[in-house]
């Protein structure tokens, strides 16, 4: 079972390296190979999840390492979906390497076995929905980072002919928009199901823990950003910076709080 996760991690690593090579040369054929590698990695990881799910002693989805692996897997699927319409070669290396680290880490850590209170459908719904939202918003954050870098290069008139072809500003803005449209509702559902799961366990929808508090702050920030973006009060550059800042909060709420506490 874990061997499939190792295979997926290996494919992600190979895809990331191939993408770096393809961008540096530049070689479109190698870049195509990198995308195929990424897709094969996603297939292997899907098979790994299916196998894990069928185990009698299934690992807990609420385990942080495992949740991050799911998030990375969804991020890869989201990128592959976007790549059908847009040219996004610059996204492949960071997402492939993140997916490699997440998958390899989850396989190496042999996630803890699910406790009874973490094996219900609400827990699964919370982890899957929140992970999907995080993955999409992570891609939005990455698009935001690329947008700011590209915009800065353009404004400084340093180098017009690009050695490493980042996607165009238009494509990055479109990724940002699509990722927000998909990610924010998923994150909202994740927060909602998290509250319901908590209610089922403790009788309270909000206990005031660090994770819940920061998650709520991050959600409110995103709600504000989405409202500003779609009400037309934000330009593309502001939206890119907002997506990056928003994801930093979100990451802290999910990963940082766990490390701090």
């Amino acid at each position: 079972m874990y061997s499939l996760q190792y295979i997926a991690a290996g494919l992600y690593l190979a895809a990331g390296l191939a993408a770096v090579l393809g961008l540096a040369l530049p070689a479109p054929a190698v870049l195509r190979g990198a995308r195929i590698g990424l897709a094969l990695g996603a297939v292997a990881q899907t098979a790994a999840f299916a196998t894990l799910h069928r185990l009698e002693s299934a690992p807990s989805l609420t385990d942080l390492g495992h949740a991050i692996a799911i998030m990375a897997w969804l991020g890869v699927l989201f990128l592959l979906f976007l790549s059908l319409r847009l040219r996004l070669p610059g996204f492949v290396p960071p997402i492939a390497f993140i997916a490699f680290l997440a998958t390899f880490g989850a396989a190496l850590g042999h996630a803890e076995i699910a406790a009874d209170d973490a094996s219900g459908s609400l827990a699964h719904a919370h982890v899957l929905l929140a992970s999907a939202g995080l993955a999409a918003l992570g891609v939005a954050g990455l698009a935001g980072l690329f947008f700011l870098l590209e915009h800065r290069t353009l404004k400084r008139r340093r180098r017009v002919a690009r050695r490493i072809p980042l996607p165009s500003l238009e494509a990055l803005d479109r990724v940002n928009r699509v990722a927000l449209v998909l990610g924010f509702p998923l994150l909202s559902l994740g927060v909602l199901t998290g509250g319901l799961w908590l209610d089922a366990r403790t009788g309270e929808i909000f206990t005031g823990s660090l994770h819940e508090t920061w998650m709520l702050i991050a959600w409110l920030i995103y709600a504000g950003l989405v409202a500003m973006r779609f009400a037309g009060h934000q330009g593309a550059r502001q939206a890119a910076a907002s997506a990056l800042v928003g994801f930093a909060f979100l990451l802290f709420a999910v990963v940082g709080v766990g490390l701090v506490s």
Partner: peptide
């Protein structure tokens, strides 16, 4: 080393901004 012109730069710039 690379073919450069104002026209080429204009196209590169346009492609950097537009998909």
């Amino acid at each position: 080393q690379r073919p450069v012109s104002v026209a080429r730069v204009a196209v590169d710039l346009a492609k950097q901004i537009f998909e």
